[in-house]
Design a protein around this nucleic acid. Sequence first.
DNA 1: CCCCTAATTCCACTTAGTGGAAATGCTGGG
DNA 2: CCCAGCATTTCCACTAAGTGGAATTAGGGG
Lengths: 258, 258
Amino acid sequence: MAQARRYAGGVGGNRSLERGIEILRAFRPGVDTLGNGEIAERCGLPRSTVSRLTRTLVNSGMLDEVRAERSYRLAASVISVGHAMRTGSPVLNAIGAMMRAESAKRRLNVGLAAADRTMMVYLESIRYSPRAALRNVVAGQQVPMELTSLGRAYLAGVAGAERERLLRLFKRRSAAATKALLADVRRSISSVERDGYCAVSWQPAVLAVATPIALDGLPVYALNMSLQNVDRSDALASEMGAYLNAFAAKCKEVLASR
Amino acid sequence: MAQARRYAGGVGGNRSLERGIEILRAFRPGVDTLGNGEIAERCGLPRSTVSRLTRTLVNSGMLDEVRAERSYRLAASVISVGHAMRTGSPVLNAIGAMMRAESAKRRLNVGLAAADRTMMVYLESIRYSPRAALRNVVAGQQVPMELTSLGRAYLAGVAGAERERLLRLFKRRSAAATKALLADVRRSISSVERDGYCAVSWQPAVLAVATPIALDGLPVYALNMSLQNVDRSDALASEMGAYLNAFAAKCKEVLASR
DNA sequence: CCCCTAATTCCACTTAGTGGAAATGCTGGG
DNA sequence: CCCAGCATTTCCACTAAGTGGAATTAGGGG
């Protein structure tokens, strides 16, 4: 036994910190408050441990305690960290304005997303509407990687090992429709390799096309364009694809010159 | 010595988790990447400790590693947590749409903020512009508590002990202008108590009024309205104050009925 | 190619964290 | 009003997990 002992943080990282982060992530969109019991269950942790960690998160300002119902909710601080992320992001800084202009010019939704485990998360999603008052911008929304154009473009953009790791995860997730789904994902990846983009209609009457943006020193991003209230049509998809390719080229140019 | 030993997490909380959160917070808006050395300095931690904690944060998906420059940046995951916070927030859910309508109706900026240590952070800041294309919504931006109407309204909304704690912190921060500043803050608090709102012109040519929203089971929020490109005038301030009081009353009504 | 700087790994030390068990504190029913 | 039942928090013996200074390794510039 050459390696008798595994030193803390040797490779697995700091356990308490990992668990604390997992607790924050247990607050998925839509859930308001969580009690220690529910957190313990969701994260698979002993209740006493959760009790201590949530206390710490309250002290650090990441959780607010709701005394009355003995539960917690995410505190406002988490969005200031989120804001810091967005203002720091060199990609969003470089192309955010261009995205907004493009959305207005082409009259469609334009989005930029990155991977968050097996989901894609929008750094910015510009929702076009003919009625100016209804146009809006969302950040932080998650969509499933394997089902969306955004996610499949991302998969096309990452190197072999990481891609295969993710595909294996999808397999484990939905045992049933897996065969067909994976084939479909691979078809989208080929589509990106062939045409530069892939088209997916994840939600009814919404057609989306996406393309990866992979530059070194940066994680892989995916750029998409989409339109509501349309039927899936190859003609429309290739028109949007052409717009997207042109726009992505312009973005990469801007990004290459830092 | 009755209490010989302080048990871990007894009251201070979990150290590693606290430190990890502090590392995330070291990424303030505008900073793109931070190296372990710089993080160590900013957080006052030993470099080896930082090295281990940043590794953990990368594994947990909260940081992206920039190999080339041996540094880190906030990962996209942080905005998905931020998004979860916003979608979970019962206050924002209840009055977000009303705020947007009010901004359009009154043709001014409307914001909702909560406290983050000694800063106020916008859950939503609706920036009005006559040009529809320039209207936008920001979340997560921080403004200093002691200098803004938002912050002072917040101070007016929190109970004695917490308020005094914060005032002491401001004192420690800016030794010089403290006397006058604190007096000004107290004047704003009185203004809230008397008129329901306070008016402050923190940035040149911007006039803002704010009022606290304190409901139990929830942290104290502050609601504000503001206008750019105007001179400070008491007439304008009291007109805006009246709008704000009316709007805040409507909000509280909606919030009271859950 | 080699120095210099900064990050990472090593490792002896021990404290900070752990989790089962006991205690406490709410809540709703009788 | 009190008590049963449940959930959360505190206690504490135990020790593995984490710590930080020292040694090492890895970049990057001259």
